[in-house]
Simulated scan of single mutants.
Amino acid sequence: MNGLVVLIPVALGLGLAGLAAFFWSVRSGQFEDLDGAAMRVLLDDDDDKESE
């Protein structure tokens, strides 16, 4: 029972920290361009190096 006195506040604190990090990432624009990163994986950067 004494362990729950420690573990419940720790779990709540970690949950709130994760929620705060999520809201911070949304406000700072981390999720603005979801398709851009997916398309950059498909682009071939070797074309730019051949023309130099």
Rank of each mutant, 00 (worst) to 15 (best):
A17Y: 06
L16E: 01
L19A: 08
V41D: 10
L19Q: 05
D45M: 12
L12C: 08
A21L: 07
F31A: 05
G18H: 03
D44M: 00
A20W: 14
V6D: 02
G18V: 01
L14F: 05
K49C: 09
M1E: 15
L7A: 15
P9F: 00
D47Y: 05
R40L: 07
G29W: 00
G15M: 08
M39V: 10
M1V: 15
E52R: 11
A38W: 13
D35R: 05
D46I: 11
A20I: 13
M1Q: 12
D46A: 12
R40I: 03
I8D: 02
G3L: 15
L42G: 06
E32V: 08
V26C: 01
S25C: 04
D33P: 01
A21V: 03
L42N: 07
L42K: 06
V41I: 15
F31S: 03
G18P: 01
L19F: 08
L19H: 09
F31H: 05
G29A: 06
I8T: 07
A37I: 11
G15I: 07
D47C: 02
D46T: 13
E52T: 06
G15C: 07
K49V: 15
R40G: 06
L43C: 01
A11W: 01
G3V: 14
D45E: 09
L7P: 01
A11K: 00
I8F: 03
E52V: 06
A38T: 12
G29Q: 01
A37T: 08
V26I: 08
D46V: 14
A38D: 11
F22R: 14
S51A: 14
E52A: 09
I8Y: 00
V26Q: 04
A37K: 05
L43A: 05
S28E: 12
R27N: 06
L34D: 04
D48H: 10
L16N: 02
R40S: 11
G36Q: 10
E32C: 01
R27H: 09
G18L: 02
L14K: 03
D46L: 14
E52P: 02
N2V: 10
V6E: 10
A20R: 10
M1I: 14
D44V: 06
N2E: 15
R40K: 06
L42I: 09
K49Y: 14
L16P: 00
L34H: 05
N2W: 13
E32P: 00
M39A: 09
A17F: 09
E50H: 09
D44N: 03
F23W: 04
Q30F: 13
W24L: 08
F31L: 04
G36W: 05
V6Q: 07
F22D: 04
L14N: 02
L19P: 00
D35L: 12
A37L: 11
W24A: 11
V10C: 03
E32K: 03
M1K: 06
E32T: 08
G15H: 01
A20L: 13
K49F: 14
F22I: 13
V10N: 00
L19C: 07
S25L: 06
A37D: 10
E52M: 08
E32S: 04
F23Y: 08
V6Y: 08
S25R: 15
L12V: 11
F22A: 13
G3Q: 12
A37R: 08
L16G: 03
D45T: 12
G15F: 15
V6I: 14
V26K: 07
Q30A: 13
L7E: 14
V10Y: 04
